[in-house]
Design a protein around this nucleic acid. Structure first.
Lengths: 282, 282
DNA sequence: ACAAACGTTACGATATTTGAAATATATAGG
DNA sequence: CCTATATATTTCAAATATCGTAACGTTTGT
């Protein structure tokens, strides 16, 4: 424990990441565009429709401003209105994602192995990549009904607090990892501290044993295993994870059976040459 | 043929749709936001990376402007740069889609029937909804490798020139259909004329026989069958389609075997009560 | 029926965005 | 290797697009 703390501190202890930026309004950025995108990002799993006033409240904007921005978003086809006048995301928003999906054709080759993992864990298996300081789920197989959330492409989550995320972090090397951790610490000061030793352990474990486990660190009722895959030719870091309901996950089984098997699956996926091997395996 | 022309003309012949708008800069819309979104929309199946200059050229913007907008998009996490400095969509863009996908939970109940259709046609089966004047594919099953494109959520296509689109059009009633057709004619004058009789026939056929066929009207080498499903509780029009390579699609088989079977499949899907039945079946 | 909350439009002030020009960096060609 | 061309970013002042106030019309709820 002290050991792992030390490792993490070594990596990302002192020093401000961005001396002053990030909260101050950066005059090199376009605030109108940001606000428009922030409106789109307000929608999520549980909030699928929003009123003008609600948007204004949440973003601290004037109602008139929101009205105009939403009108623009509707004009562009990314928003629609329900009969009551509330705003909804329009399906056309999927079109923005299409190029990302079609650029990850390699994904299809992982369907087989992922199915196997999902079956052997009686849970689901997901594929995630790093985007910014989050992981983004790109694909998933398995039974969705047994989960509190809907595992679909586009779910995002914290890199330092989930099995997927930690497996992804383990792929970062030297300065890259340092920067990312510093960034995470900066953005989630409390949370980061709370999970720092678990995160450090998980990273180390991914590198030595090929997998890591999270017992509800992110979604309370889900036990997850993560395993790093590598980096694609266009620079995406990729990891696999599998998740199962907490009640059906005996620790002994997870650590000594499922974990090693996932590591093995990852090994054989890497054999295909789809990814640049992690630095710690070279 | 003259018959079908008449039908269509009846629906949407004379009259300008929007007296003057649509090309003139609408001062009620936010141009900065539009430009930012237009940048994201430049990416597609074949164009996965763009330079600043290329973006500026395509959108007719100053390079400095593009630089700032892209910086903003990167800051928001929706764009990234490759080693050469070119811009790429970041996976985080998938996160915008997630609420749309998770809102269409009913989709999971169609997986079974869709698999069957894909198998019996030795092609693929796709689920599409209307968004604006396009259809958007929401889900697909089947073998992707035999196709020239990658069938993934997010593909968009023309409502008047594809089996999916025509099946969706058949669901629109009265004024709604009239408006949509007028809109399509306005946006694609030549194309619309060229396909008008086929479109009219297809709509009629969907309503009477439950399906329509397109022999390469959209993707030249693909024969597609479309069948209307209905309207979801939150107002989305939904249709199924199946596509197969042209060479393996004998017309007799398509018309007299596959088509009726798709119509039958659609019927039994409608029995589940997931959708509000089409007006022409009430 | 009234009050309160909401959504949209108009309009003037102003803050944000824009494009030109300059700088810096990269790429290609001779 | 150097020059020439293309590209990306920054600065800055001008301009204009955006914002918020206020007013209006609607809806909702008491």
């Amino acid at each position: 424990m002290t050991d792992s703390k030390t490792i993490l501190n070594q990596w990302a202890d002192e020093g401000e990441v961005e001396p002053e930026a990030s909260y101050a309004v950066d005059h090199a950025l376009s605030s109108t565009l940001m606000r428009g995108l922030e409106i789109l990002a307000l929608f999520n799993d549980s909030v699928d429709r929003l009123s003008n006033a609600e948007i204004a409240r949440q973003l601290g904007l004037n109602r008139a401003t929101v009205s105009r921005l939403c009108k623009t978003l509707i004009h562009m086809g990314y928003l629609r209105r329900d009969p009551k006048g509330q705003f909804l995301l329009a399906p056309r928003i999927l079109a923005l994602s299409y190029p990302v999906l079609s650029a990850t054709r390699w994904r299809h080759q992982l369907v087989g192995p992922m199915r196997e993992i999902a079956e052997m864990s009686s849970g689901n298996c997901t594929l995630a990549v790093i985007s910014g300081d989050q992981f983004v789920q790109v694909y998933s197989v398995g039974n969705p009904t047994s989960f509190p959330h809907v595992p679909e492409p586009g779910i995002t989550g914290p890199l330092h607090r989930s099995a997927s995320g930690r497996a992804l972090l383990s792929l970062l090397e030297g300065q890259d990892l340092y920067d990312m951790l510093a960034n995470l610490r900066h953005n989630f000061p409390d949370e980061f501290e709370e999970h720092s030793s678990l995160t450090a352990d998980a990273i180390t474990r991914c590198r030595t044993e090929g997998f890591c486990a999270s017992y509800g660190d992110w979604r309370p009722n889900i036990v997850a295993l993560g395993t790093p895959l590598g980096k694609t030719s266009d620079g995406l870091y990729v990891a696999l994870a599998c998740g199962l309901p907490r009640f059906s996950a005996r620790e002994d089984y997870v650590e000594n059976d499922l974990g090693p098997r996932m590591a093995k699956a990852a090994d054989s996926i890497r054999m295909t040459g789809l990814f640049e091997s992690p630095f710690f395996l070279k």
